[in-house]
Design a protein around this nucleic acid. Structure first.
Length: 435
RNA sequence: GCGGCUGUGGCGAAGUGGUUAACGCACCGGAUUGUGACUCCGGCAUGCGAGGGUUCAAAUCCCUUCAGUCGCCCCA
């Protein structure tokens, strides 16, 4: 038997959750005025190496790299931003008249990792990127977008972690301060941290092994090394969040693992314990130099990524109502003629927006009744020889627990009225009149 | 890349060397050839993730491998 590849999975009954999330994404994107952008699932390897950063774990050990038949070195995208930035530059979207240019993306990303809860080799990511404005208020709007999405999905147990790394000047000051601070303690730090000390001292703060040690706790804070300008930017972000009623927690150890971040960085963590070690639902920040470093004009930008699988795990732990698949009418047939008649009736009902299911196996009445339950049918329409003869249908309303004999020509109106009551829209599902 | 745990029907689960692999749920058929959800009767794994080995005998012991799961690293 063939098996799916490690770290991938088939979406079957859970599709309902994906639809719910996708619907929320579309409606929140509309509210915040973000346009969807779709970019390829693979790009030249070079793009991710330069975009995400050669020294990051993602590029160093997690990318799916392969050579195509033309000998090109390609990589399945490990995250969304690099591809969107490439498209932004290549399509000269910076010349768009609307500023800032705000995009969202949704789709699979790939990382070669050992799978565990909330972590897959192929996973879906949703993210937004806003280009063209260096504004703390835009940073705050991006965070507000994520929070709004979570609220729309009835999530309650999450918290925004916030920090600022500052721009190039602030960061180099901070790096120097960190190195000075940790230098006398290097022998006490783990192997990884010693390596990070040379390659990227900021990442030492990410370490969980050394997190409880004294030098770690006394480590200098990035926000104490911001230039006046960067400090002002961060103050604007915080004020804007407060103005929008968004709670946040300043997290001095939050540095993020991707190289391109500047100034604001944030994560939104799930606090329900449903996600185990992978509690980061959303991660993002400002990246003011990425567009330029990938060959575009100097363009400030800010964005985030959200893991759809993690979001859905959080959703399932919460009380988000997910509708069961259902059908309006189950046509229960008895005999050959009745089946033909049922097809005609189903066709007629479907044209009017009423969904139908019927029996294709010539099964017993009992079996068909069971099927109608499995299909969550509101109505069972019984069609036997007698009904075919008289052009009638025996209609059972499973909700009202009533049964009546109706002329075929009256069937549609009767069902429609019961489904919609006095309103225009179906009360049982999302069917709208005229659709 | 490293470590722990797990793998028996559609699902849950017993079985730790000895006949025919319990049981429950679900499903299917019948009792009841036009009214299901209760009840009763019957059916439903030639096989225990896969491959190899030990043995008179393997779901059970050994080796290899695959997958799942949780954790580390890191991230969404």
């Amino acid at each position: 038997m063939y098996q799916k590849m490690k770290g991938t999975y088939d979406i079957t009954t859970e599709i309902q959750y994906f639809h719910a999330v996708e619907k929320a994404i579309q409606s929140v994107s509309r509210l915040f005025n973000y346009q969807e952008i779709r970019t390829p699932h693979f790009e030249a390897s070079e793009l991710f190496h330069r975009g995400v950063g050669e020294d990051t774990d993602i590029v160093g050990k997690e990318t799916y790299d392969f050579k195509d038949r033309g000998g090109r070195s390609l990589t399945l995208r490990p995250e969304g931003t690099a591809g969107v930035v490439r498209a932004y530059i290549e399509n000269k979207l910076y010349a768009e008249k609307r500023v800032p240019q705000k995009y969202y993306y949704y789709g699979s990303s790939f990382r070669y990792e050992r799978p565990q809860k909330g972590r897959f080799r192929e996973f879906r990511q949703f993210g937004v990127e806003a280009f063209g404005a260096k504004s703390g208020e835009l940073d705050a709007e991006v965070i507000a977008y994520a929070v709004t999405l979570f609220r729309a999905l009835k999530l309650k147990n999450f918290i925004v972690h916030l920090n600022s790394l500052g721009g190039k000047d602030s960061m180099s000051r901070y790096r120097k301060a960190l190195k000075e601070h940790f230098k006398p303690h290097l022998d006490k730090l783990c192997e990884d941290c010693n390596r990070r000390y040379e390659t990227n001292p900021l990442r030492i703060l990410d370490c969980k092994i050394d997190a409880d040690t004294k030098p770690f706790k006394k480590a200098p804070k990035s926000i104490d090394h911001l230039t006046d300008e960067d400090r002002k930017h961060f103050d604007t972000v915080k004020a804007a969040l407060t103005a929008m009623g968004i709670d946040y927690k300043i997290d001095h150890s939050l540095v993020r693992g991707l190289d391109y971040y500047t100034d604001t960085v944030f994560e939104i963590k799930d606090t329900s314990a449903a996600l185990g070690a992978q509690d980061v639902l959303c991660g993002g920040g400002r990246y003011d130099h990425l567009v330029e470093s990938l060959g575009g004009p100097s363009t400030p930008a800010v964005g985030f990524g959200i893991g759809i699988e993690r979001l859905i795990i959080a959703l399932q732990a919460g009380d988000f109502p997910v509708p069961e698949p259902s059908v309006h009418v189950y046509l229960l047939t008895l005999g050959e003629e009745a089946r033909i008649e049922a097809l005609k009736i189903a066709n007629m009902l479907r044209l009017g927006g009423i969904s139908c299911e019927t029996d294709f196996l010539n099964r017993s009445m009992k079996a068909q009744f069971k099927q109608s339950t499995h299909h969550n049918a509101r109505f069972v329409a019984i069609i036997g020889e007698e009904e075919v003869q008289n052009q009638t249908v025996n209609l059972k309303d499973q909700k009202e627990r009533s049964e009546e004999t109706l002329a075929v020509q009256d069937l549609y109106n009767a069902i429609y009225e019961k489904l919609t009551g006095k309103q225009d829209d179906c009360n049982d599902c999302e069917h709208k009149k005229g659709e």
